[in-house]
Design a protein around this nucleic acid. Structure first.
Lengths: 210, 210, 210, 210
DNA sequence: AATGAATGAGGATTCATTCAT
DNA sequence: GATGAATGAATCCTCATTCAT
């Protein structure tokens, strides 16, 4: 958590610091970023940095909170539709909303990417936290679909949730980071969803695997 | 490539160094490892390290080669059965052989884990290399199954291969690293395979999704 | 260029560092000097050195700038007389002023000596820079004397300038460095100038070479 | 002095080592050359190097001796003519013979260049040694011309010798090293010689300086 | 004599964090 | 609170020389 001093800062200064730091964490991976990089991008004195934050992780963590909130606001409309229709059919639109968010705030998205490629113990804990959060949310939706009969009862909801979460939080994020076009990403996701929904095996005329 | 000096070393010393270094790369992530850590674990002078290897990456790369060979030898029996039966049915045994290998040489396995969590350009290249290798191998098997009629023709073989590869090279590796039991890992893989094979959707009595 | 931090330092500290470093570059040749030598003479921590300067060259370059300025101030009176009388006659006084400066600030002078004996690419560039500067300045004076009729038109002004510059910047500097007395140096220069002005050949009674 | 072991080596091996080392000292400046570079170019074991030579300087010094001998043999014809005609008129052909030698054995010549650009105390002593040698030889010739009446008695022979030696051993060597064409080098030398012989000053109709 | 592995003292540079003003 | 100078441990890598075989 940033220190009180940071929260007591006039809004415009707080914003400037957040934006500067997002800039830094876009330019460089988390591990590569030094305090010197940050204070350069934020244009604050070195001493001030330690007045506002414990250390690099404290700041990164804060940025992620901020972004998380923005994302939630952005995604709200889609999430609200979630309970009314089968989740598994709405998932593509959920995913596309996520992609829209990424395109609208590419700098935010890159932070997420960097989160997944750090080995610092603090960061790994954070990865696990976000992972658990995302998976449990998706698992609820899957269970809903199971109750409604759209998804088979013998399927482990958590595992489907995990697959979907990985798809979004890792594979898509990587493609995005590598500069792939939306078309290609969407095609990729659709293919994977097709597999998850219907499986890969050929069935005979009675609908049985051979 | 390690320098000639290294290869000319008496076997017991070469082994000691390899084992020491594997120890280091187990204890710490690739990025965290310093040359000082390595020479401590190998009990060699600093100068000697640079007599044997170009740098940290050179050593890590060498260890991976060694392990790769050991793994190939270990897996040979299973791989030989591969062409005779449908791949998708044999996959669990392929996977279990991998798990056996991991259990037999847990320290080797952890290196693979660390490979996937480095930001160093050299390492990223290596990740891509191994990824491409694994995916293309699996894709061939999938295509074989498509020709034999076990897998639907409208499925993108590369994407299935990617899913299976990720499963093995990333998800399982992570579970292993986190200390999960074989039972749990196998259950996880079986569940995922079930999904990949049959999909998650419930079908009506005519075998149609609803 | 030294970093801002250096220029913001209190004067006495800046002076102490400059003097310490001049001490180092007197004691040892540029190539031999290590950062460890410098921080020892300046009595500053290793980290501080890099707060003030990019590297060894940055510091050396700065010292040369400082000295250059001091020298210009010192030489101004002689340089001002330069346009009023034939340069070739005034040259000895120009040279002697340089020698006076060297005697007044012997440590400064030695830096100039070391400048000419380094193999570092940066230093070679610097040598060429100073060489070109000195030669072109002297060549202008020589051309002036050619216009005034003191020096023959068939003489290559740049070559004379080069000879004079070498005399000053290299031969005299070396003698000075070797601890020769002013008398001897002046005698040496006078002899060389005599040769440059009148040549070495004996002439017959009609003023013709034989 | 190389060790006895070196001199006891079969001729072809001795030659190979000399040639290899000359290669090294061409590729790199004296200060930059490491023992590793030398044993690579000579293709000898590291231990052998220290069986043959005390250290890098010992080898370099030896090479210079060898080259000096070759040069003397090459220059003998011109040097023999030296006593029969005025030296100052023969100097250009002496100089041109030197240039021919340089063109014939460019690798030898470069060693001389590197000799002049090292700050190692040993090397400085060597510079002084060669300088004294060259100057005293030239001074003898100049004194001969003074006795014969070609050069004025009031000229300091040593100083003329110094000027000529520097011209050859430093300026020309540098031009050669920088890849200048013979034409340009010869023009440069001719200009300097003209100045040294006749001076730069204009004379009135009676042959007096004005 | 020949070999080449062993050694460890340097060398340059970076950086998180503290602390005096 | 704000500032930015100060610090020194850490990091990578090089190399002359020795010494065991």
């Amino acid at each position: 958590m940033p220190k009180d001093t940071f929260f007591r800062l006039p809004l415009h200064k707080k914003k400037r610091i957040e934006e500067g730091a997002i800039e830094t964490f876009n330019r460089l991976s988390y591990d590569q970023v030094t305090v010197a990089d940050i204070i350069y991008d934020c244009d604050i004195p070195r001493g001030s940095f330690y007045m506002y934050f414990e250390n690099k992780f404290d700041l990164f963590n804060h940025l992620l909170q901020v972004i998380q909130q923005d994302k939630m606001t952005f995604m709200a409309p889609v999430l609200n539709r979630m309970t009314k229709e089968p989740f598994i059919k709405l998932y593509p639109s959920l995913f596309k909303a996520g992609l829209d968010f990424a395109r609208s705030y590419p700098k935010f998205y890159r932070l997420g990417y960097h989160l997944f490629y750090s080995q610092e113990p603090d960061m790994i804990k954070m990865q696990e936290h976000f992972m658990a959060l995302g998976v449990s949310m998706l698992a609820e939706y899957v269970k809903g679909d199971q109750r409604s009969g759209y998804i088979r009862e013998d399927i482990d909801a958590t595992i489907v949730a995990t697959m979907l979460h990985q798809l979004n939080a890792r594979d898509v994020m990587a493609m995005f980071y590598e500069g792939k076009e939306d078309d290609e990403i969407i095609r990729f996701v659709d293919e994977i969803l097709k597999i998850i929904r219907y499986g890969i095996e050929r069935e005979d005329e009675n609908g049985k695997s051979i």
